[in-house]
Design a binder for these strands. Structure first.
Lengths: 144, 144
DNA sequence: ATGACTGCAAAGCCTTTGCACGCAA
DNA sequence: TTGCGTGCAAAGGCTTTGCAGTCAT
């Protein structure tokens, strides 16, 4: 199912007029295998570790293009470093819990929370297309 | 009521062992008058406009201290620039709607959303102390 | 008198941009 | 062959840090 996203994204990029290049394909494939958010540096590092080195600029450019097509969501989870994660066409997604002690990021999902957000969205006068929720605190280990 | 926050914050800072200096006091007072988030640059600019110039470093240092005492919340509303807003001891607060067209940031509040978040928080195994919600889309004017 | 507070300037990071070369179409 | 895609290096922008002078206690 994760691989589905990569194929979907490649198709959407092609339809949007982008050509097929190695760097972008590698970034999209890596993103498709992820279940949570990755920073640009993490993407660059993981690709290099796989032996497929990609320029930093290409990583950012690809992410920018994917964001423009609503294929990935950019998240600012606190420390001045952005993270990116695939946006499934099904709408299924999760949010994040961040531990202020160890920095661990844990995903969670909650239907009731989604319903509340959908309800608010309709009452705003905005055409809301994305949302994100971040909970911060201490994880079991750090809270002691 | 806004002024209450500034006094509360000054007291908390004193109890935490901080001395009374002009730069920090000015930042705290300005924050107390705000009802929504301000960036460090906006804080610096507004203080200068009032004739009370404060060094950029002092603004950031004060914000860092206030954040450490949970007196302000740092928000990353998208464009790589952090914003800060007072955290009321009463717990009352709002969230943000961001227009991707004009960049406008509109605050909103919703009790049902808060309840949903509180419910999720209790089920996570984390000791959740803060949260933030950001809705993104196009405002009435930009959606046309 | 001591050590925290400040401001300025420099350094650090993450991200974006400029440019020349290579590859898809 | 055209011009998009890519990588490298330089530039940008926000934030943090180092340092010396000042002020609170």
């Amino acid at each position: 199912m994760s691989r589905d996203w990569a194929e979907h994204a490649q198709g959407a990029l092609r339809e949007a007029g982008f050509r097929a290049g190695g760097a972008r394909r590698a970034v999209v494939e890596l993103l498709g295998e992820q279940d949570c958010a990755l920073s640009a540096a993490e993407i660059e590092g993981q690709l290099r570790r796989r032996g497929h080195t990609v320029g930093r600029a290409s990583v950012y450019r690809t992410l920018e293009q994917l964001e423009g097509l609503h294929l990935v969501q950019r998240l600012e989870i606190g420390t001045g470093t952005a993270s990116f994660e695939p946006l499934r066409p099904t709408g299924e997604h999760h949010h994040h819990l961040v531990c202020g002690g160890c920095g661990r990021v844990v995903p969670f999902e909650d239907p009731q929370l989604e319903r509340a957000i959908a309800h608010v969205s309709r009452s705003t006068g905005f055409d809301v297309s994305e949302h994100d929720v971040t909970l911060r605190g201490l994880c079991g280990r750090c809270a002691g």
